[in-house]
Design a protein around this nucleic acid. Sequence first.
RNA 1: GGUUCGGUAGCUCAGCUGGAUAGAGCAUCAGCCUUCUAAGCUGAGGGUCAUUGGUUCGAAUCCAAUCCGAAUCACCA
Length: 590
Amino acid sequence: MNIAKSIQDAVLHSLESLYGGSFTEKDFQLNHTKSEFEGDYTIVLFALVKSIKKSPETLGEELGQHLTQYYPQLFSAYNVIKGFLNLTVCDNYWFELVQRNHLDICYGKQPMNGHKIMVEYSSPNTNKPLHLGHLRNNFLGWSVAEILKANGFDVIKSCIVNDRGIHICKSMIAWQLFANGATPETTNTKGDHFVGDYYVKFNEEYKRQIQELIASGMNEAEAEKNAPIMLQTQQMLVDWENGKPEVLELWKIMNAWVYKGFDATYQSIGCDFDKKYYESDTYLLGKDIVQDGLNKNIFYKKEDGSVWIDLTADGLDEKLVMRKDGTSVYITQDIGLAKQKYDQYHIDQSIYVIGDEQNYHMKVLKLIAQKLQFPYANDIHHLSYGMVELPSGKMKSREGTVVDADDMVEEMISTAKALTTSLGKVKEFSEAELEELYKTLGLGAMKFYLLRVDPKKKMIFNPEESIDFHGFTGPFIQYTYARIQSILRKENNIGKPINHTLLPLEKKLAFQLEQFPSAIMDAAKELNPSAVANYLFVLSQQFNSFYAEHSIANAESADAKNFRLQLASMTANVIKSGMQLLGIQVPSKM
RNA sequence: GGUUCGGUAGCUCAGCUGGAUAGAGCAUCAGCCUUCUAAGCUGAGGGUCAUUGGUUCGAAUCCAAUCCGAAUCACCA
């Protein structure tokens, strides 16, 4: 049980024995005491004034009296200022908390709760390489999965690969037209970039052909429809769907190139999946569901044979669920896949990490599932995250302002290298250890930068700021960890402190350590890794302040030294497991 | 136009289940390395919390309206 809950219970009991009647947690507010006042926790009394009919000051006095008298193991002092009752928690509470947990590497984690959740994230298209937006998606999905695991959920990480469709055919056509048989091997290019280059070539050629047609007197819309390369591409998609062998063959080869490239990227950023779905396997799913919906009169057929659902009563529009030629559309496939996930894994909840541009789509998906009365309909959850923009505005692939994932990783690692070299603190490291360190720091900085902000909000990616390793950054926290390790290497046997009066900075640190379990519970509840990032930053700041003010190795007494070693050890463990939830490693030296 | 989301310091962001004088980081300025890692610490300046009205003992936080910005409303995925 955490301290806030203990205090809440104590206050409830005191209120009941002082004033009779029954109270709930909602009858008063429990806050952290602001640093300019004496105390640890504050009861805001105003809300009680009405029901108890005493002045806030009297109420505070009476309650403070009662609490310190009947809960001496919890409270050592109190004071009342205006309508606020400030309570000081006994030193012994913090002392024992640290004593008990300073070696526990599982501190803050919850036991398994029997609930199974699937987290789908990443979901790349196989016609171009991953970019900054994918990185935010990957880090978020991975981290949310880890945070849920730490809170006792059984988590399956999944990914839907969009491996078919017109966009893939564009790259394929361009390759046929321009590649002359080139491959990633012959050109020494990473597979996903290689294929992406042909996607770009397609667009260049397409644009050129449109201009040509316009020059010969066609209007723009006509030109867009009739450009030969577009007609070829559309024909290729038809051929693919009809299973034309040479088209399938090329499709497989080019996708294999892309997968090889993706795997290298996923490997480098430490991203993995338990289950991969491929759209080429799932795009036919959902057709039987359409029939089912027709039978139940949830869907209806128009004269041309296309099938629709009317969502106008729910504030949305009419939505197509099957084309007149009987092929399924995006939403239909998604309904099919949602069902498949549920049938295969018997999950209790399905979380989709997808950009907020798809809010409408995901709303429709859930609504249709609800109308079809699927048992899992209410457990579909869209973790909607905001787009990543540049200071100059949106990233546009057409204008070449897209920040490539691989370039980004490389740049962060080389920044880490440059800074580490200039500081010259790890001269004894071997070449391999150095490479490892640069990667730890570079990736740490990048992941932290993308995870430290609220997922729901769009974020501005500032290239200069992102390579800063000072302040609210991953390396700052990694540095704090490395500092502690340096101390613990030298002072490796921690004795048991017997009696020690906590100094303010020590107590502040212990207080923050006490918050860790509830911080990761909140992060799970909100599906928000930034809560963990913020927590770890504050913890590190507090450790560093403490470190600058008080010596650990040369503490005033043996008890003080042992207690501070325990504090340091617990801080390091919390940093390590917290960073682990963000997918960030911590170095023991940097 | 409808729907949804957002607007807090020069910049990037916390805070939003209503509570005390609105917080960090970056940037700027001033200090701190003969003792545990200065990727650090201490301090200063910097704010009409978009605007207006409402609810209340109390509003950045809740409600309404307005202004500004974004996403979306495809027989694309």
